[in-house]
């Protein structure tokens, strides 16, 4: 199928992009990697008047460090995130989860920032951003501001970015110490969206869990952070203790009932997969 007509601008600096977004009016859309947007346009499910393509804004690409924080440009491609040595060292969970996004060709175009700004609760990376306490850096005509991940995802496909703002970068506190990570993605076929995904990073001390971070994919209209499970996991050193802690992983969640699965099954999966993800991340086998 074929998209409806639109205008197209390809700024080369973030300032130009913000100006273009302001000039284009409310029906403009940002084109990042386009791997979700272009199929939507082809199916004529959206009719933007203008696309502002960020792919030529080089300042939005790449991974850097700012002290204890990893700074990932919003336009950094998934394939670059996966391979990046800094990401692998300090945010291995992001690298692992990103390698499960769609397929290699899509990962060559799709971007980290684009995926987060799209805010699809079935997307894999929002839960990771939430679990890792990422901060999202937005820039607009009024300047730059930083939004905590927990405040960024507002609802299904909705973020706290204002219409004149562009997501510029994602700041992820480095994980240092003895962290194990696991992204447990449950889907029916390889290229399907996650029915449920569980992102976990676990720090162990002397064989027991000292700290756990968990983000759940597709368990509600936004990614979910089950803090009670994280708290209950502290001190766990056996599989049985992990399973007990994970039993509350779905508490208070309101997952969708759709073609993929009914809500109660998703909640069941969240418990099972949380236990598995945490056990694997922590190296707890029995």
């Amino acid at each position: 199928m074929i998209p409806a007509q639109f205008d197209y601008v390809a700024p080369t600096t973030l300032a130009e992009a913000i100006a273009a977004l302001g000039a284009a009016g409310e029906d403009a859309k940002i084109l990042a990697g386009g791997q979700s947007l272009i199929p939507v346009l082809r199916l004529r499910l959206a009719f933007p008047t203008t696309l502002i393509d960020l792919s030529r804004v080089s300042e939005l690409r790449g991974v850097g460090e700012d002290g204890d924080v990893l700074v990932i440009g919003a336009m950094t491609k998934h394939s670059d995130v996966i391979e990046d040595p800094l990401v692998r060292q300090y945010a291995a969970l992001l690298s692992e989860a990103t390698s499960t996004v769609a397929d290699p060709a899509v990962r060559h175009r799709g971007t980290f920032g684009g995926a987060l700004a799209h805010a699809d609760p079935a997307g894999d990376l929002a839960a990771v951003a939430l679990a890792l306490d990422a901060e999202l850096v937005a820039e607009g005509p009024g300047g730059r501001r930083t939004i905590a991940a927990k405040d960024f995802f507002v609802d299904y496909l909705e973020t706290s970015l204002s219409p004149d703002e562009i997501l510029a970068a994602v700041r992820i506190p480095k994980l240092t110490g003895d962290w194990g990570v696991r992204y447990e993605k449950f889907n029916r076929v390889a290229q399907a969206w996650a029915i449920v995904g569980v992102a976990t990073a676990v720090r162990t001390e002397g064989g027991s869990i000292a700290e756990a971070r968990i983000g759940l994919t597709n368990m509600g209209s936004t990614p979910v952070r089950p803090h009670s499970v994280e708290a209950a996991l502290v001190g766990a050193s056996t599989r049985e203790q992990v399973v007990a802690a994970a039993a509350s992983a779905a508490d208070g969640t309101n997952p969708p009932s759709d073609l993929g699965a009914k809500a109660d099954y998703r909640q069941h999966l969240a418990r099972v997969l949380t236990a598995r993800a945490v056990s694997q991340a922590a190296g707890i086998t029995s």
Partner: peptide, 9 residues
């Protein structure tokens, strides 16, 4: 890099 040419303008 491999890409899907239906999803690129």
């Amino acid at each position: 890099e491999s890409v899907k040419s239906c999803s690129v303008l």
